[in-house]
Amino acid sequence: MRVLITGMGGELGTRVAQILEASAEVGDIAGCDFVPPRRRLRRAEFRRIDPRHREKLRDFVLEFAPTHVAHFGVYEPASRLTPAQAAQRTELTSMVALSAAARAGALEYVVVRSGLEIYGRRSNTASVPDESVPPAPRTPYGTSLLKVEAAVAGIARRHEIPVGAMRYAPVVGSHVPSPIGRLLRLPVVPVPAFADPPFSLVHPEDACAAMVESLFAKVSGPVNVVGEGAASPWQAVRLGGRLPFAMLPPMWSVASQAVEFMGAAIAPHVIELLRHGRTASGAHARTVLPKLSLRSTQTVLQELYEWAEVVPMSTVRREVA
């Protein structure tokens, strides 16, 4: 089993590499990203490649000739990149790395990172969608995810191999750069004035476990990876002891700029989550990934808030003195 991890520099990519390193069933592991891995890797090979250097990325993947691909090169807007940069890098990584992996000739399985944003706005026709609900994204990130799933479905058709898509609820954790996590940790949090829709989250460790399990089980098709239960914006703000700031619909564009100034940019898919909610049915995951045990949304939130505040070094030095 030769595993290629695209987006290995991200929190999830690095953690998946660590889990795979510990498995005797996995032979060579290689990964690439435009940022270095977040943790020390013992036997995985990492190559720092900006996806805009297509030839470099293609040659690296062709040379490695993976049998399995865990595609984490799907970048969430306002996480580490601007929306435009995220869309561009996602598209390039997906097209170049996946097509090169397929052309190398040894490919047996591909699993990609996707998200519930692909279902679009939570509506009365599908407020808790399962995998059979047709995607109808309404945000740039949702559209980006749909393109990745479409690309990988094309590879599945042409090369007759199974491909999976992990449709994650927003991945929120203390160390994961996540726009919704960052927003909820602000002292004052914008929330919709006349709505309080439910949304679900998933813990980063669970997201990684789902990816690894799908690599071993070669799960085919989309799978919703969603933590148990849900939370709502007003509830989440109270749970974190933050101050809610009620917003009317026209105020969101102004709020996104104000909040960006405070250090937590809001992308359109985050506004969609706060205004319309985002949940899905995780029943299929329990069937196809039976070893997976997901933390509840409330647990994920509590862990987010239990993470210590950032204390400036000058304050620490003063206290020690």
Partner: peptide, 25 residues
């Protein structure tokens, strides 16, 4: 308003997706 209030006390939407999900849960 009405839909959200009824959902708070256990109602679900009259859609195939939601009924399927509720039964799966």
């Amino acid at each position: 308003g009405v839909g959200a209030a009824l959902r708070r006390i256990g109602a679900i939407a009259a859609s195939v997706a939601d009924v399927t999900s509720a039964l799966n849960e």
